[in-house]
Design a protein around this nucleic acid. Structure first.
Lengths: 204, 204
DNA sequence: AATGGCATCCCCTAAAAAAGGGATTCATTT
DNA sequence: AAATGAATCCCTTTTTTAGGGGATGCCATT
C-alpha cells in the first residue's frame, strides 16, 4: 500500500531534505508541500494525503492551531508534528490537538520511515528524545487558570501588583493572591525564577 | 572556479535539503558534512573547504565557539552561519567570531547561491530578514561585564542578593550595585521585566 | 599624569514582594 | 445537596528591591 505524504514547513531546505531522504521509498508518494498554513488548507480542498508532516512554527498560524483545524475538517489524515524544539509543552499541545506523533528535525531516515509506518497503523510515534522529555517532565505539567495567565504576562511586562490591579480592574490583594498561587504552581521562590521558568515552559 | 562547500548541522534533513538544492550547481563541489563540532574539526585536518555553512546550535560545542576555533586555525575558510533563529545577539556573536555571513534556514536556493557567491568575493552576506533585525535592533545592543553576566544568571536562578553575595564572595552591597547597573543597561524597572528581556536577547 | 571603565563597598528611604494566615462569592461538576 | 475550583478580597510580618546618593582601589588606554 502506498502512503500519500504531504509536508508543511516554512524552511525550504527541510522540505527538500525530507524529499531527498524519501525519494527512493517506493511505498511513499510525495503529493506536495506547503510553506504556510493558508496554502496547506487550500491544498487539502483538492487532495488529501494520508500523513502530513507539520512544522509547529509557521509564519502565519502556528502548527498547533493548524493541526486542530485540519483534524476537525479531515479527521482521517494523520498528522505528525515536526519540530526543532524538544519542549514538553509543545509536544503536549500538538497531541491534544490530534497529532499522531512528534518527530524532531534531527531524525534519521530510519526514524522518519518508522514514524510513517507506525502512524499509518493508527499508533502514536515519538522521536526517542521527545519520548524521553515527555517521560522526564511528565509530572512538571503546570496548569494555570485564565486569570493566572493574564497576571503572569503582566508580571513579565514589568508591571507591579498595584499596576496589574488597575489594568485588570481588581484589587492589589487579588493580584497578590494570584501571584502566590502562580509561584506555588511553578514551585519557585521569587519573580526572577518564575519568569525564567515560565519562558522555558513556553508560557511567555 | 569551483567552490568547495562543507556543511555542519546536526539536522540530517537540513544537510540533505541543501545537498538537494545545490546538486545541479556545477561550480559548487560538495566535499562533505559533519553533524557536530568534533567531526568537523577532524575533517578539516585532512581537507579544507572554501566555505562552511555552520549551524549555530550543535550538540557538543556551539557554532559560535566552533566558528572561532575554525577561524583561528584556518583563516582562509569563509564561514556562513546557518540558523533558524533571527536573533540579533546570535548574529553579532557569529560575526565577531569571524563569520562572513548569516543565512536563515528558510532561505531559497537563490539566496544560498547569492550568499556563496558574495562570500567568496570576500564580502559579507546576510539573509534579508537577518539584515533587517540587525538594522532594527542596532541601538538595542546591551553589553554586560563578566561580573554582571554572572549576577544576572544567579538572579534568574532565583537567588536573592544576600545569596548571590555568598555565592560570589562579595558583599550584598556590591550585588546591589551590579543589579542596579544591569537594570539601567536593560532599561527596565524591575526583575520580572529584566529576566524577560534577558531571555529574549539571548543572555539566558 | 589623567581618564574612564570595572569591581568593590557603604548609606538611606520607600516601595514591593514573599510567606503566612483566612474568607466570600459564583459556577460547574459530582 | 455537596464539593470543587476559580476569582475575588483582607490581614500581618519579614525580607527583598528599587532608586537616590557617594567612595575606593585597580587596570588599561590615552
Amino acid at each position: 500500500m502506498i502512503t500519500k505524504l504531504f509536508i508543511v514547513d516554512d524552511h525550504y531546505m527541510v522540505i527538500e531534505g525530507i524529499h531527498a531522504l524519501l525519494q527512493n521509498e517506493k511505498n511513499i508518494e510525495w503529493i506536495g508541500h506547503a510553506m504556510n498554513a493558508d496554502s496547506c488548507l487550500a491544498f487539502l480542498q483538492h487532495q488529501q494525503p494520508d500523513i502530513i508532516l507539520m512544522d509547529i512554527s509557521l509564519p502565519d498560524t502556528s502548527g498547533i492551531d493548524l493541526c486542530k483545524m485540519v483534524k476537525t475538517k479531515y479527521p482521517a489524515i494523520h498528522i505528525v508534528a515536526l519540530s526543532t524544539f524538544n519542549q514538553q509543552s509543545f509536544i503536549k499541545k500538538m497531541m491534544e490537538n490530534g497529532a499522531s506523533g512528534y518527530l524532531l528535525k534531527n531524525a534519521s531516515t530510519k526514524e522518519i520511515l518508522d514514524c510513517i509506518e507506525t502512524t499509518m497503523k493508527g499508533k502514536s510515534y515519538f522521536s526517542f528524545e521527545a519520548a524521553q522529555t515527555l517521560r522526564y517532565h511528565s509530572d512538571d505539567e503546570i496548569i494555570l487558570t485564565l486569570r493566572e495567565k493574564e497576571v503572569l504576562m503582566l508580571i513579565a511586562e514589568g508591571l507591579t501588583n498595584p499596576e496589574i490591579g488597575q489594568r485588570l480592574f481588581i484589587s492589589t490583594a487579588t493580584v497578590d493572591s494570584h501571584r502566590k498561587n502562580i509561584l506555588t504552581k511553578f514551585n519557585v521562590k521569587n519573580t526572577a525564577a518564575l519568569i525564567h521558568a515560565a519562558v522555558k515552559k513556553g508560557f511567555l
